[in-house]
Simulated assay, not measured.
Amino acid sequence: MQINEAPPLSLAVLGIGMMGLPIARRLCAAGHRVQVWNRTRAKAEPLAAAGAVVHEHAADAVHAADIVLSLLENGPVVADVLFQQGVAAAMRPGSLWVDMASIQPREARDHAARLQAQGVGCLDAPVSGGTVGAQAGTLAIMVGGEAADFARAQPVFAPLGRATHVGPHGTGQLTKLANQMIVGITIGAVAEALLLAAKGGADMAKVREAISGGFADSRILQLHGQRMVEQDFAPRGRVSVQLKDMRNAIATAQELGFEAPVTGLLTGLYAQAADHGWADLDQSALFLELAQRNGMA
Protein backbone atom coordinates (compact mmCIF):
# COMPACT_ATOMS: atom_id res chain seq x y z
CA MET A 1 0.00 0.00 0.00
CA GLN A 2 1.33 3.44 -0.91
CA ILE A 3 2.03 5.78 2.00
CA ASN A 4 1.24 9.04 0.18
CA GLU A 5 -0.91 10.07 -2.76
CA ALA A 6 1.39 12.59 -4.49
CA PRO A 7 2.02 12.08 -8.21
CA PRO A 8 5.04 9.79 -8.61
CA LEU A 9 8.38 11.40 -9.31
CA SER A 10 11.56 10.05 -10.83
CA LEU A 11 14.05 10.04 -7.96
CA ALA A 12 17.66 9.02 -7.42
CA VAL A 13 19.13 8.20 -4.01
CA LEU A 14 22.92 8.23 -3.67
CA GLY A 15 24.42 6.60 -0.59
CA ILE A 16 22.65 3.49 0.67
CA GLY A 17 23.87 3.17 4.23
CA MET A 18 22.13 3.10 7.60
CA MET A 19 19.98 6.10 6.65
CA GLY A 20 19.87 5.80 2.88
CA LEU A 21 18.44 2.29 2.92
CA PRO A 22 15.26 3.01 4.92
CA ILE A 23 14.78 6.37 3.20
CA ALA A 24 14.95 4.76 -0.25
CA ARG A 25 12.55 2.04 0.90
CA ARG A 26 10.00 4.63 2.04
CA LEU A 27 10.27 6.51 -1.24
CA CYS A 28 9.65 3.27 -3.15
CA ALA A 29 6.65 2.54 -0.91
CA ALA A 30 5.31 6.05 -1.63
CA GLY A 31 5.07 5.07 -5.31
CA HIS A 32 7.98 7.06 -6.67
CA ARG A 33 10.27 5.68 -9.38
CA VAL A 34 13.56 5.27 -7.52
CA GLN A 35 17.07 4.79 -8.92
CA VAL A 36 19.80 4.02 -6.39
CA TRP A 37 23.59 3.97 -6.24
CA ASN A 38 26.09 3.08 -3.55
CA ARG A 39 29.87 2.83 -3.71
CA THR A 40 29.54 -0.75 -2.47
CA ARG A 41 26.80 -2.04 -4.77
CA ALA A 42 25.90 -4.99 -2.53
CA LYS A 43 24.47 -2.60 0.08
CA ALA A 44 22.01 -1.24 -2.49
CA GLU A 45 20.95 -4.60 -3.96
CA PRO A 46 18.22 -5.31 -1.34
CA LEU A 47 16.31 -2.29 -2.67
CA ALA A 48 15.67 -4.06 -5.97
CA ALA A 49 13.00 -6.13 -4.20
CA ALA A 50 11.28 -2.86 -3.23
CA GLY A 51 11.18 -1.75 -6.86
CA ALA A 52 14.31 0.39 -7.08
CA VAL A 53 16.75 0.18 -9.97
CA VAL A 54 20.34 -0.31 -8.80
CA HIS A 55 23.12 1.37 -10.80
CA GLU A 56 26.83 0.70 -11.04
CA HIS A 57 27.71 4.38 -11.54
CA ALA A 58 26.26 7.38 -9.75
CA ALA A 59 25.92 9.45 -12.93
CA ASP A 60 23.77 6.74 -14.52
CA ALA A 61 21.34 6.89 -11.58
CA VAL A 62 20.65 10.62 -11.88
CA HIS A 63 20.40 11.47 -15.58
CA ALA A 64 16.59 11.14 -15.76
CA ALA A 65 15.80 12.13 -12.18
CA ASP A 66 13.51 15.00 -11.22
CA ILE A 67 15.06 15.08 -7.74
CA VAL A 68 18.34 13.56 -6.52
CA LEU A 69 18.83 12.82 -2.82
CA SER A 70 22.31 12.55 -1.32
CA LEU A 71 22.94 10.55 1.83
CA LEU A 72 26.69 10.42 1.43
CA GLU A 73 29.27 10.33 4.20
CA ASN A 74 30.62 13.88 4.40
CA GLY A 75 31.32 17.07 2.50
CA PRO A 76 34.42 15.93 0.57
CA VAL A 77 32.61 12.75 -0.51
CA VAL A 78 29.60 14.79 -1.65
CA ALA A 79 31.87 17.10 -3.67
CA ASP A 80 33.70 14.15 -5.22
CA VAL A 81 30.50 12.37 -6.28
CA LEU A 82 28.98 15.58 -7.60
CA PHE A 83 31.87 17.13 -9.45
CA GLN A 84 34.43 14.38 -10.02
CA GLN A 85 32.23 11.35 -10.65
CA GLY A 86 30.01 13.21 -13.12
CA VAL A 87 26.74 13.52 -11.18
CA ALA A 88 26.40 17.29 -11.55
CA ALA A 89 27.13 17.07 -15.27
CA ALA A 90 24.58 14.27 -15.69
CA MET A 91 21.71 16.08 -13.92
CA ARG A 92 19.13 17.72 -16.17
CA PRO A 93 18.65 21.51 -16.06
CA GLY A 94 15.60 22.13 -13.91
CA SER A 95 16.20 19.10 -11.71
CA LEU A 96 16.78 19.42 -7.98
CA TRP A 97 19.65 18.26 -5.74
CA VAL A 98 18.62 17.57 -2.12
CA ASP A 99 21.62 16.97 0.12
CA MET A 100 20.53 15.10 3.25
CA ALA A 101 24.12 14.40 4.29
CA SER A 102 25.56 16.35 7.23
CA ILE A 103 28.23 18.66 5.81
CA GLN A 104 29.60 22.09 6.68
CA PRO A 105 27.40 25.09 5.82
CA ARG A 106 30.12 26.65 3.67
CA GLU A 107 30.32 23.41 1.66
CA ALA A 108 26.55 23.49 1.15
CA ARG A 109 26.70 27.10 -0.08
CA ASP A 110 29.53 26.26 -2.48
CA HIS A 111 27.73 23.23 -3.91
CA ALA A 112 24.54 25.27 -4.36
CA ALA A 113 26.34 28.04 -6.26
CA ARG A 114 28.03 25.57 -8.59
CA LEU A 115 24.83 23.65 -9.27
CA GLN A 116 22.73 26.76 -9.81
CA ALA A 117 25.26 27.94 -12.39
CA GLN A 118 24.24 24.98 -14.54
CA GLY A 119 20.52 25.36 -13.94
CA VAL A 120 20.11 22.76 -11.17
CA GLY A 121 18.24 23.67 -7.99
CA CYS A 122 19.69 22.80 -4.60
CA LEU A 123 18.52 22.27 -1.03
CA ASP A 124 20.60 21.34 1.98
CA ALA A 125 18.27 19.13 4.01
CA PRO A 126 20.04 17.21 6.78
CA VAL A 127 17.91 15.16 9.15
CA SER A 128 17.59 14.18 12.78
CA GLY A 129 15.86 11.13 14.17
CA GLY A 130 18.34 8.40 13.30
CA THR A 131 17.57 5.04 11.78
CA VAL A 132 14.43 4.69 13.91
CA GLY A 133 13.03 7.91 12.46
CA ALA A 134 14.07 6.97 8.94
CA GLN A 135 12.26 3.64 9.18
CA ALA A 136 9.12 5.17 10.71
CA GLY A 137 8.98 8.27 8.51
CA THR A 138 9.28 10.62 11.49
CA LEU A 139 12.54 12.43 10.68
CA ALA A 140 13.03 16.10 11.46
CA ILE A 141 14.26 17.60 8.17
CA MET A 142 16.05 20.98 8.33
CA VAL A 143 16.04 22.68 4.95
CA GLY A 144 18.09 25.55 3.54
CA GLY A 145 17.55 26.97 0.05
CA GLU A 146 14.95 28.77 -2.01
CA ALA A 147 11.29 28.59 -1.03
CA ALA A 148 10.21 27.42 -4.49
CA ASP A 149 12.62 24.49 -4.38
CA PHE A 150 11.42 23.63 -0.87
CA ALA A 151 7.84 23.56 -2.16
CA ARG A 152 8.59 21.21 -5.03
CA ALA A 153 10.48 18.83 -2.73
CA GLN A 154 7.41 18.32 -0.52
CA PRO A 155 6.33 15.03 -2.18
CA VAL A 156 9.79 13.66 -1.29
CA PHE A 157 9.83 14.98 2.26
CA ALA A 158 6.28 13.90 3.11
CA PRO A 159 6.97 10.13 3.38
CA LEU A 160 10.15 10.79 5.38
CA GLY A 161 9.02 13.10 8.17
CA ARG A 162 8.48 16.77 9.02
CA ALA A 163 10.38 19.31 6.91
CA THR A 164 10.99 22.93 8.00
CA HIS A 165 12.41 25.63 5.71
CA VAL A 166 14.84 27.54 7.92
CA GLY A 167 16.44 30.00 5.48
CA PRO A 168 18.83 30.32 2.51
CA HIS A 169 21.44 27.85 1.32
CA GLY A 170 23.61 26.54 4.15
CA THR A 171 21.15 27.22 6.96
CA GLY A 172 19.79 23.68 6.89
CA GLN A 173 23.30 22.49 7.69
CA LEU A 174 23.71 25.21 10.31
CA THR A 175 20.50 24.01 11.98
CA LYS A 176 21.76 20.43 11.90
CA LEU A 177 24.98 21.53 13.60
CA ALA A 178 22.91 23.18 16.33
CA ASN A 179 20.93 19.95 16.66
CA GLN A 180 24.10 17.88 16.91
CA MET A 181 25.63 20.23 19.45
CA ILE A 182 22.57 19.73 21.66
CA VAL A 183 22.56 15.96 21.11
CA GLY A 184 26.28 15.52 21.74
CA ILE A 185 26.36 17.73 24.82
CA THR A 186 23.22 16.16 26.29
CA ILE A 187 24.54 12.62 25.81
CA GLY A 188 27.59 13.69 27.78
CA ALA A 189 25.47 15.21 30.55
CA VAL A 190 23.26 12.12 30.84
CA ALA A 191 26.25 9.75 30.89
CA GLU A 192 28.12 11.76 33.50
CA ALA A 193 25.06 12.13 35.74
CA LEU A 194 24.16 8.43 35.62
CA LEU A 195 27.75 7.43 36.34
CA LEU A 196 27.96 9.85 39.28
CA ALA A 197 24.79 8.32 40.72
CA ALA A 198 26.15 4.80 40.22
CA LYS A 199 29.49 5.74 41.83
CA GLY A 200 27.58 6.86 44.89
CA GLY A 201 25.67 3.62 45.15
CA ALA A 202 22.41 4.42 43.35
CA ASP A 203 20.75 2.15 40.79
CA MET A 204 21.21 3.85 37.39
CA ALA A 205 17.96 2.43 36.03
CA LYS A 206 16.03 3.78 39.01
CA VAL A 207 17.77 7.18 38.77
CA ARG A 208 16.72 7.45 35.13
CA GLU A 209 13.18 6.45 36.10
CA ALA A 210 13.09 8.94 38.97
CA ILE A 211 14.09 11.98 36.91
CA SER A 212 11.89 11.12 33.92
CA GLY A 213 9.09 13.66 33.61
CA GLY A 214 11.00 16.38 35.45
CA PHE A 215 13.01 19.26 34.00
CA ALA A 216 15.95 16.91 33.28
CA ASP A 217 13.84 14.65 31.07
CA SER A 218 14.61 14.53 27.35
CA ARG A 219 14.54 12.22 24.39
CA ILE A 220 18.25 11.67 25.02
CA LEU A 221 17.58 10.57 28.60
CA GLN A 222 14.88 8.20 27.39
CA LEU A 223 16.66 6.62 24.41
CA HIS A 224 20.38 7.02 25.02
CA GLY A 225 20.00 6.83 28.78
CA GLN A 226 18.28 3.47 28.39
CA ARG A 227 21.12 2.27 26.17
CA MET A 228 23.61 3.29 28.85
CA VAL A 229 21.65 1.47 31.56
CA GLU A 230 21.45 -1.66 29.40
CA GLN A 231 25.03 -1.32 28.10
CA ASP A 232 23.59 -1.55 24.60
CA PHE A 233 25.97 0.31 22.31
CA ALA A 234 25.03 -1.32 19.00
CA PRO A 235 25.42 1.50 16.46
CA ARG A 236 22.42 3.61 15.47
CA GLY A 237 24.34 6.87 15.25
CA ARG A 238 28.06 6.20 15.60
CA VAL A 239 30.59 7.95 17.82
CA SER A 240 32.59 8.70 14.65
CA VAL A 241 29.64 10.48 13.05
CA GLN A 242 28.88 12.47 16.21
CA LEU A 243 32.54 13.48 16.35
CA LYS A 244 32.47 14.59 12.70
CA ASP A 245 29.43 16.76 13.39
CA MET A 246 30.94 18.27 16.54
CA ARG A 247 34.12 19.12 14.63
CA ASN A 248 32.03 20.69 11.86
CA ALA A 249 30.27 22.78 14.51
CA ILE A 250 33.59 23.96 15.92
CA ALA A 251 34.91 24.81 12.43
CA THR A 252 31.76 26.77 11.61
CA ALA A 253 31.88 28.59 14.96
CA GLN A 254 35.47 29.63 14.22
CA GLU A 255 34.45 30.90 10.77
CA LEU A 256 31.73 33.02 12.42
CA GLY A 257 33.98 34.29 15.21
CA PHE A 258 31.81 32.53 17.78
CA GLU A 259 33.13 30.90 20.96
CA ALA A 260 31.66 27.45 21.71
CA PRO A 261 33.54 26.21 24.80
CA VAL A 262 30.99 23.56 25.83
CA THR A 263 30.97 22.05 22.34
CA GLY A 264 34.77 22.15 22.33
CA LEU A 265 35.00 20.20 25.59
CA LEU A 266 32.59 17.51 24.39
CA THR A 267 34.35 17.29 21.03
CA GLY A 268 37.53 16.38 22.88
CA LEU A 269 35.73 13.67 24.86
CA TYR A 270 34.23 12.11 21.71
CA ALA A 271 37.67 12.20 20.09
CA GLN A 272 39.15 10.33 23.04
CA ALA A 273 36.32 7.79 22.94
CA ALA A 274 37.09 7.19 19.26
CA ASP A 275 40.81 6.88 20.01
CA HIS A 276 40.05 4.27 22.67
CA GLY A 277 38.33 1.99 20.17
CA TRP A 278 34.68 3.03 20.40
CA ALA A 279 34.39 4.97 17.12
CA ASP A 280 32.02 2.47 15.53
CA LEU A 281 29.72 2.11 18.55
CA ASP A 282 26.57 4.13 19.18
CA GLN A 283 27.27 7.71 20.25
CA SER A 284 25.89 6.84 23.69
CA ALA A 285 29.16 4.89 24.12
CA LEU A 286 30.63 8.18 25.33
CA PHE A 287 29.41 6.61 28.58
CA LEU A 288 32.29 4.10 28.28
CA GLU A 289 34.86 6.88 27.99
CA LEU A 290 33.54 8.59 31.12
CA ALA A 291 33.24 5.27 32.96
CA GLN A 292 36.85 4.41 32.16
CA ARG A 293 38.04 7.79 33.42
CA ASN A 294 36.35 7.02 36.75
CA GLY A 295 37.56 3.44 37.09
CA MET A 296 34.08 2.08 36.40
CA ALA A 297 34.64 0.35 33.06
Rank of each mutant, 00 (worst) to 15 (best):
A61R: 15
Q85C: 05
V87M: 07
V81G: 02
V53C: 10
S70G: 15
V78Y: 07
H111W: 05
R92M: 05
A52P: 03
A108W: 12
V68N: 07
S102T: 15
A59F: 00
D99W: 07
A89M: 10
G94V: 06
V77P: 05
L47N: 12
A48V: 09
P93L: 01
Q85W: 03
R106E: 14
M100G: 09
I103F: 14
I103C: 06
D99L: 02
P93I: 05
G51F: 06
A59T: 04
G94M: 07
V68G: 08
A64I: 03
R92T: 00
A89W: 09
A79N: 13
G75A: 02
G94F: 07
E56Y: 03
A58Q: 03
V81Q: 01
A52R: 10
W97V: 01
R109Q: 15
V68S: 05
M91I: 01
A88M: 09
A58T: 01
A65M: 08
L96N: 10
V78T: 14
A79E: 09
R92F: 09
V53W: 01
I103R: 11
L96Y: 11
L69Y: 13
H55G: 04
V54I: 01
A59S: 12
A108F: 12
G75T: 04
G94T: 02
L69P: 15
L47M: 03
V98T: 09
D60P: 00
S70K: 10
L96H: 10
A42I: 03
A65H: 10
E56M: 04
V68Y: 12
A44C: 01
A42H: 04
D60C: 00
S70I: 13
A42F: 00
V87F: 11
S102R: 15
G75M: 03
V68H: 09
A58V: 05
A44K: 09
V62W: 08
R106M: 15
V87T: 09
V62M: 00
G75F: 08
D99A: 08
V81D: 04
A58S: 02
A61P: 00
A42S: 06
P76C: 02
L71P: 05
A108Y: 10
A61G: 13
A88E: 02
H55T: 04
E73A: 15
A59P: 01
D80V: 00
P105G: 11
E73T: 15
V77G: 10
A65V: 00
G86Q: 12
G75Q: 09
D80M: 09
E45G: 08
D110C: 10
E73G: 13
P46H: 13
R92S: 03
P76N: 03
E56A: 02
H63S: 02
F83V: 06
Q104H: 13
P76D: 07
R106Q: 15
